[in-house]
Design a protein around this nucleic acid. Structure first.
Lengths: 156, 156
DNA sequence: ATTGACAGTTCTAAAACAGAACTATAAGGC
DNA sequence: GCCTTATAGTTCTGTTTTAGAACTGTCAAT
């Protein structure tokens, strides 16, 4: 299956994987959420090759996750900032970080702590139901085909 | 940077990307959450090559996300089920699906709807603070170095 | 004895990636 | 004017990963 085919799948997970499901995109987005914006900044803190970085940035711009904006004329220089679509990836990033915090840290503990400005405390993200506010677990959810489901009986 | 190096990074996101940050692992896990368990089932519904499927399953078992369990003797046959570590990826999967639902669906609408058994309603997942229960956004969070932070001034 | 189901393994060609060098534009120091 | 530095890429070559198809081994059913 080609990458392009993934985007066309009738599955929201597959389509999102087409955007962020490679080795570098999520790491680039991590840097974006840490307020990094420039090519050299991404390259030096990630250790990604320049070639691949240029390509990934193009991809993220093409998908509307980042916007490429000139920050000076002569010589023209651009920086990359998160669009609203990109900012909306925050729960994805945070849930990944949280899983890593629980299951992948070594004896030294978490590399980062997160403070919720509103309440002032260090917190973990919790996923709850938009309707009743109770936590959501795999076993507590029932799946139904939606209007965009594929007709053939294949998973979506 | 090699995949192995990713696992060693002092960053919970990087370490999690080492587990799920490729093109197929998340799709395999999607099938697991949809109660698929067997090699042939994964292969036929994903269209992944058998070679790569075998390798990815091994990787997920090695990381403790899946467990390989015999379901019959003679001939020996195995199936793959989610461990607790794997079940804990549910918020990651759901936040990815939700982002796709908002930003990647075509005119036909969502391929899938999710019902919260507890309240009986179709819902969206919402990420809230474990301490105060209020929703979490990128701008409402402040990041601090934790005990596992790298000493050199590099992003983690 | 033959077919089919299942869970893989092995092979070759194509695509993606790593690592390093190179290009283009301009500012600043001498 | 000439040299160095900064930034944002592009180009090149060799290695690794992936796609696609065919093949293996074990057993049950016909």
């Amino acid at each position: 299956m080609k990458w392009d085919a993934l985007e066309e799948e009738p599955c929201s997970l597959a389509r999102t994987v087409a955007v962020i499901g490679d080795r570098w995109s999520l790491l680039i987005l991590r840097e974006c959420f840490l307020r990094k914006r420039r090519f050299e900044a991404f390259q030096s803190s990630l250790g990604i090759t320049r070639h691949l970085l240029a390509e990934r940035l193009k991809k993220l711009v093409r998908f509307g996750v980042l916007r490429r904006i000139p920050y000076q004329q002569s010589p023209k220089r651009y920086e990359y900032i998160l669009t609203q679509k990109g900012l909306d990836l925050y729960p994805v990033i945070m849930s990944i970080v949280h899983w890593g915090n629980i299951h992948m840290v070594d004896s030294r503990g978490r590399p980062m702590l997160h403070e919720h400005k509103k309440c002032g405390k260090m917190f973990d993200p919790v996923m709850v139901c938009s309707e009743c506010g109770e936590p959501v677990t795999a076993k507590g959810v029932h799946v139904h085909p939606g209007p965009g489901a594929r007709q053939a009986p294949t998973a979506a």
